[in-house]
Simulated scan of single mutants.
Amino acid sequence: MKINILTNLIRVVYLIIAFPLTAFAQYPDAVQVLIDGGLKVEARFDAPGGLQGYVGRKDGRAVTLYLMTDGEHVVIGKMVDGFGQDLSAEHIRTWLPAIDLTQAWQQLANATWVAEGPKDARRIVYVFTDPNCGYCVEFRQKASAYLNRGIQLRHILVGVIQPSSLAKAASVVSADNPLEHLAFLDSQFPRNWLESPDLIPAGPRKKIEANNQLMKTLAVPATPTVFYRDKQGEVHKIVGLPDDTALSNAVFRPPNQGASQHLQNRQ
């Protein structure tokens, strides 16, 4: 009898070690169906009105949802109080963990990108670019004024806005002169918004799909999204078109003149 009890106890301990407690976490059906659809729940909390709140991410976007008191229905979106205060924004700030960008720089370097600017640049800036993104076109136009400062801009091509985006992005990375082809697509925007190139080989298509996945990994919800390093080497992210002050003082700040080439390329 004692041997059987001990054996069963060992089995329970093994299950706990092999399958973390989070694996046994159960969500109400209304929440679980969203998880099955790609939502990653990061935290659960008590929300106003006796509701159960959840924060998470879906395709890189922060999501708030609130389980009704019946436990069977979920409301997704913004909660406001009687003064018009956005409570959901506060819930995101309080409960949603910040994305750890410690490894982001190497992940960006390993992605498929198109470089614009000097090859011996002393500073690197990355931007997620969709060929059907008007703000990406505007960002590239504004960035051109800074590229003669020893700064290189690397476009990580993605296809997320329109069905034609993936094929266009793949056509850029597979072109003989990718930067020239990107400039051509920019010049045609938005007239060619829905036009799609001919069938793209599997290789370039997989590269763009990998870039799309990197967007989700780094919680990038939109294009353009810019990644740059500050003077201390810390990685920062700006979602959307940065304003002129951010461009000149942060994103495209002049490189450190005395840095060695190794350190400069890390920027």
Rank of each mutant, 00 (worst) to 15 (best):
P131F: 05
L67F: 06
A210G: 00
V12R: 04
A30Y: 04
L65T: 10
I208T: 01
R11C: 15
E180Y: 07
V41W: 06
E138A: 14
S144E: 13
S174E: 10
I200V: 14
S260M: 03
A175E: 01
I238C: 07
G50Q: 08
L51R: 13
A30Q: 06
F252L: 07
R123S: 11
K206G: 09
K40D: 14
R123Q: 12
E116Y: 01
T102Q: 15
N249E: 15
G71F: 10
Y135P: 05
A250I: 00
I200T: 00
V158K: 05
D186S: 11
Q85C: 07
D244H: 06
L247S: 02
I10P: 01
E209T: 09
P242A: 01
H155R: 10
G49P: 02
S196Q: 11
A98I: 05
P190S: 10
V137W: 03
G56E: 00
R93W: 01
I92R: 09
Q188E: 12
V235G: 06
A89S: 13
F128C: 01
S88V: 01
K216E: 11
V251F: 11
L218V: 10
Q32I: 07
E116F: 04
V33S: 14
F19N: 11
L15F: 15
K119Q: 14
K237M: 15
S164H: 02
T225G: 09
P118Q: 10
L6R: 00
G84D: 08
K119C: 03
I17Y: 14
P118G: 12
D130V: 11
E42Y: 08
V127F: 06
L108H: 01
E90H: 02
G240F: 11
L34H: 00
A104G: 10
Q106M: 08
D100T: 04
V173H: 07
T217Q: 14
R253M: 13
L15M: 15
P255A: 12
T217D: 11
